[in-house]
C-alpha cells in the first residue's frame, strides 16, 4: 500500500522501512522515513514537518 503526501511524495512499506521521529537536537519537529532495499541502498526518503503562520496582521508587527 502506498500513501501520497500533500507535496507529492510516496510513503510505503517497500524494502526495509526506517522511521526516525522525532529528530532531536533541532528546532521544531521533524520526521524522516526511508525505504532501504536489499542492497542497503536508500530508494525513497521523505521528511515531514509542521508549521503555521499568522495572517491578517500589519507587516511591521
Amino acid at each position: 500500500m502506498s500513501i501520497a503526501t500533500p507535496n507529492g511524495f510516496q510513503l510505503d512499506n517497500s524494502g526495509k522501512r526506517v522511521v526516525v521521529d522525532p529528530i532531536t537536537r533541532i528546532e521544531g519537529h521533524l520526521r524522516i522515513e526511508v525505504n532501504v532495499d536489499e542492497n542497503n541502498i536508500i530508494r525513497n526518503a521523505v521528511s515531514t514537518g509542521t508549521m503555521c503562520a499568522a495572517r491578517g496582521h500589519p507587516p511591521r508587527s
Partner: peptide, 11 residues
Amino acid sequence: DTIMAAAGHQA
C-alpha cells in the same frame, strides 16, 4: 527533544 542525545523510538 531539543537537546537530548536520543532520537526516534529511543527518545
